[in-house]
Design a protein around this nucleic acid. Structure first.
Lengths: 135, 135
DNA sequence: AACAACCCTGTAGTGGCTTTAGAGTCAACA
DNA sequence: TGTTGACTCTAAAGCCACTACAGGGTTGTT
């Protein structure tokens, strides 16, 4: 399978595939006579796995760790456990601040009715006032 | 007020303050004889405003636009309106995917009970299986 | 022979900072 | 007077996870 086919099979950008190889996440593929990369189904699975982990918003460094676990099936999986816990904690923190953010923005949105000048803009006044409160 | 005091007053990192100046978000401050920056209360307000907008996750480019509006009070505020709408839309999209992410991770978490080897790890199996489904 | 579609490498750019290196300034203390 | 420590300065590089671009080679079709 050439890189373009792998791209079509997974939806992953060609540059991103090469980037993962450079970063050591994807094993170095064989090359044909003209220097083109040749991928096997193992590469496809591995790439899908990486993208799934990325969809879970894991940093590449952690995905690398998980891939190391996959390669050493006798290792203790407590660390994977911990990785997932940490990831979950990070996501929850961000989720909380995103919710607060959405609330603030939608409240802000109410303060603008059309056809004002900036001097009269409710949004601007709110933003300035909120900044002042924090000081 | 020197940069360290501004840092203590706002909680904003010293390097970040200089970075905002370089990026044209914070007006160039006066300097004392020895070259130290001297800030006024105007700077403090402006910095608080920037941080408030950043807390709303606005990109610096948009904060710059808003600051331009503040500087030109006769301008039409419809554009601010639109900026906030776009920001709100972006936040909602991300919020949705974050919620899905949290759900996936917490489901994943259930699959690991303590003291396994990686070969038997429920989390790993789930991750691999999920990746395969997507292919 | 020309062209499109594919592939290669290497480098630079993105955003929003943070870190580092290397140097100068200033007040307080021994 | 010397020196310590806290503060400040500039310029450049590093971070993450890509993305884009420049400049070239390869393959298949018309």
């Amino acid at each position: 399978m050439r890189i373009g086919e792998l791209h079509h099979a997974t939806g992953v950008n060609i540059e991103t595939i090469r980037f993962y190889e450079k970063e050591g996440l994807l094993p170095v593929p064989a090359r044909t006579g003209n220097g083109y990369r040749t991928y096997s189904s193992t590469h496809l699975e591995r790439l899908s796995f990486i993208r799934h982990c990325r969809a879970l918003d894991m940093p590449l460094s952690e995905i690398k760790q998980i891939l190391d676990f996959v390669a050493h099936p006798e290792a203790d999986c407590g660390d994977i456990n911990r990785l997932i816990d940490e990831q979950l904690a990070r996501v929850r923190v961000r989720l909380k601040s995103m919710r607060a953010l959405e609330k603030q923005l939608s409240q802000l949105r109410v303060h603008c009715e059309a056809n004002h000048t900036a001097a009269e803009c409710g949004i601007l006044h709110e933003l300035v006032a909120a900044a002042n409160c924090e000081t």
